[in-house]
């Protein structure tokens, strides 16, 4: 997949470079960011609501301006992106592992197990991601004390997003597994008498993985968006440990007073990150599976 990038159009190369850069910068936040926005001692109310450096009244110390508490927006965005990417990536990882395992079993073993897994999936897919995630996050907050705190919130968000997304992997893998299981190379190893587990994991799994990688790429963008939406609605990351969505939520309160940068820059960062991943994801999808084109659930 990486090797194929050599033949990619320029826009995809730029997007891939951008996505990798954003992810690297975000993950290395403590090394890269000018200040630590999580450290209450590092900022001062005197610096509050300063516009970006190039606007009249801006301060060169705050390239993208500061928020209502005097935090540097650039640092807040870099730290926020780290939170968003970790939660999005975590959700994809959880959803993909669960979905692949269940899909493989459902597709190869079939019967009642298959019916059970797929019916659960059907019910889940009856609801849009965002609604289900809201429900899960909302219920979790009501049941678990401190669920909205910075320690538990990321895991609840990962769980809330993955609850919906695994179905997509499971369905794809199940369908691919059923196709592969009918192919003659699988029949050949069955005739030889290889054990079921070895056929499933040694022979079928490698052949159903490419659509999974395609879905995972596109899903990463979707998961980051869902997390941002939840945080924006106030059921995601708390303001003490903000993701990009939380930052936009905070900024939204200042939009009407003309202080646009607190909302707009995190929003821009979010859109650029998601767009970059989507451009790459789209190209990967068209290249590796033309039939998947446009069939986004």
């Amino acid at each position: 997949m990486i090797g194929g990038l050599r033949k990619a159009p320029l826009s995809v190369l730029i997007a891939a470079g951008l996505a990798v850069t954003i992810v690297l910068v975000a993950l290395a936040a403590p090394l890269v960011a000018p200040t630590n926005p999580l450290d209450l001692a590092s900022f001062n109310l005197i610096d509050a609501e300063l516009p970006p450096a190039w606007v009249e009244g801006g301060d060169p110390r705050f390239l993208l301006g500061s928020d209502n508490q005097g935090r540097d927006m650039l640092s807040a965005i870099i730290y926020g992106a780290r939170v968003s990417i970790l939660i999005g990536g975590g959700a994809v990882l959880v959803a993909a592992s669960l979905g692949v395992a269940l899909g493989l079993v459902a597709g190869f073993v079939g019967g009642r197990l298959d019916a059970l897994i797929m019916r659960i999936g059907d019910v889940i897919l009856s609801f849009p991601t965002i609604l289900l995630a809201l429900m899960v996050a909302g219920v979790a907050r009501a049941v678990i004390p401190d669920a909205s705190g910075p320690k538990l919130a990321p895991f609840i968000l990962i769980g809330a997003i993955a609850t919906h997304e695994w179905v997509q992997y499971a369905r794809t893998v199940r369908a691919a597994t059923m196709v592969e299981a009918q192919k003659d190379y699988v029949k050949a190893v069955r005739v030889i008498g290889l054990p079921t587990r070895r056929i499933m994991f040694g022979h079928i799994l490698p052949n159903v993985m490419s659509p999974v990688l395609v879905i995972a790429t596109i899903n990463l963008a979707a998961a980051v968006l869902t997390e941002a939406t939840l945080s924006f609605l106030g059921v995601g990351m708390p303001p003490t440990y903000p993701s990009l969505g939380t930052l936009i939520r905070i900024g939204n309160e200042f939009v009407f007073s003309g202080i646009w940068w607190i909302a707009l820059f995190p929003a821009l960062a979010l859109v650029i990150l998601v767009l970059a991943v989507n451009v790459v994801g789209d190209w990967v999808r068209d290249r590796f599976n033309p039939k998947l084109r446009g069939r986004k659930a």
């Binding site: 192919k183 003659d184 190379y185 029949k187 022979h203 052949n207």
Partner: peptide, 9 residues
């Protein structure tokens, strides 16, 4: 098998 394309992994 018949199909030379699907009979090899």
């Amino acid at each position: 098998f018949q199909d030379p394309y699907s009979s090899l992994n």
